[in-house]
Simulated scan of single mutants.
Amino acid sequence: MPDYDFNSPRLFVDASLEEERRVSLEPSQANYLLNVMRLDAGAPVLAFNGRDGEWRCRIDRTGKKKADLVAEARLREQTPAPTLAYLFAPLKHARLDYMVQKAVEMGAGILQPVMTQHVQASRVNVERMRANAIEAAEQCGILSIPDCREPLKFEAALQAYLARGPMIFCDEREDAESPIETLAKLSEGPLSLLIGPEGGFSTEERARLQGETNVTAISLGPRILRADTAAVAALAVVQAAIGDWRGASS
């Protein structure tokens, strides 16, 4: 991302963005810019909404604790949202927050919790998941907010995502060839990556996955990884082998 502005604050907004368009900030956003960052009227801010690209804006104070953004110029055109779906057995609290943020940074376009037999957390706060996704997108120059979906049971998730393209799952018992070589054999199209809970997939779940021709098992090496670490490792392998890292300029 050459010549990118890493110094100006960056915010996600719901409103449309176009030249001289005024966008009212939420109280938390105004507080962040005015009191945390201590910015004043006219200071530059980057804004995006997932539809209109990224815009350079200026702050216009409208009150002691209120402010608007005024869009001045589009810096980047909107790019298509990533098609990579990240399916995961939910973790608890802070570790789930971390995993969501890293999945967004690593290019996931869909975040889908999957309730497996050995899942650690029985509930998922989707609004909190989306808030973490927005924070990661704001900090990392990402133009689209991933689709944060309601949890699905294991079987329902398979039926929903096997229909869209190849599915990859990380199996700690898999002793196959290099994951790079394995992934290189997959057909093109929207991908789904499935990572299980800390206790691994059950015998029944593993057999169900291995019985599908559109499912590929990969190993992440000789070490046992925590689920949040496995997420980063697996997404890096997928992006390097068959994802959007291929052909990227150095």
Rank of each mutant, 00 (worst) to 15 (best):
S249T: 13
N49S: 09
I242R: 01
E127N: 08
L34H: 00
A94V: 13
Y98S: 06
G63K: 07
S8R: 03
L143F: 11
R123E: 14
S16D: 15
A230C: 11
A15Y: 01
I142R: 10
E72R: 11
G107C: 09
F88D: 02
I168E: 05
V237D: 04
R10W: 08
Q139P: 09
I145C: 07
A133N: 04
R128H: 10
D228H: 03
I134E: 00
M37P: 00
T216F: 04
N7Y: 13
P90K: 05
T62R: 02
E19G: 00
S28R: 07
Q29K: 07
D97I: 02
R173M: 15
L194C: 04
P197S: 14
E26C: 00
F48M: 01
A30W: 00
V238W: 02
E198Y: 05
T203E: 14
R123T: 15
Q210H: 08
V70D: 05
V45Y: 11
L194T: 05
L11I: 09
E205L: 07
S192A: 14
Y98E: 11
P190W: 10
Y32I: 02
D171M: 05
E188N: 08
A236S: 15
L75D: 04
L193R: 05
I218M: 03
G199R: 12
F169L: 12
D14H: 08
L39I: 00
L11E: 06
L25F: 06
L84T: 04
A89N: 05
T229C: 08
Q101T: 09
A227M: 10
L186F: 03
A233F: 14
R95E: 14
S28Y: 00
V23M: 04
D97K: 01
E181N: 12
N35F: 01
V100Q: 07
D147K: 13
E177F: 07
K153A: 11
S187W: 06
M1E: 14
L17Y: 02
D147E: 15
S187M: 12
G53S: 11
Y4I: 14
E181K: 13
R128I: 12
D3G: 10
A121Y: 09
A137R: 02
G243N: 07
Q120F: 11
D14L: 07
R164C: 13
L69C: 01
P2C: 04
E212S: 14
E77K: 06
A89Y: 04
V126T: 15
L96F: 07
C170D: 07
G50V: 05
E135C: 09
N132A: 12
R95G: 11
E138D: 10
A136K: 00
P166W: 07
S144T: 15
L17D: 08
D171F: 00
A217D: 08
G53E: 12
N49Q: 06
A157M: 04
Y161E: 13
D228C: 02
L193F: 09
G243H: 06
T203S: 13
E127D: 14
A47T: 12
R95P: 07
C148H: 05
A67R: 00
H93R: 14
E135P: 04
D228R: 00
R58P: 01
A207V: 08
A81M: 07
Q120S: 13
N125R: 11
L25M: 09
I195K: 03
V215S: 02
Y161S: 06
L194Y: 01
R22P: 01
S202G: 12
E77P: 00
T83E: 15
R208F: 09
L33I: 06
I145K: 01
R10A: 09
E54F: 05
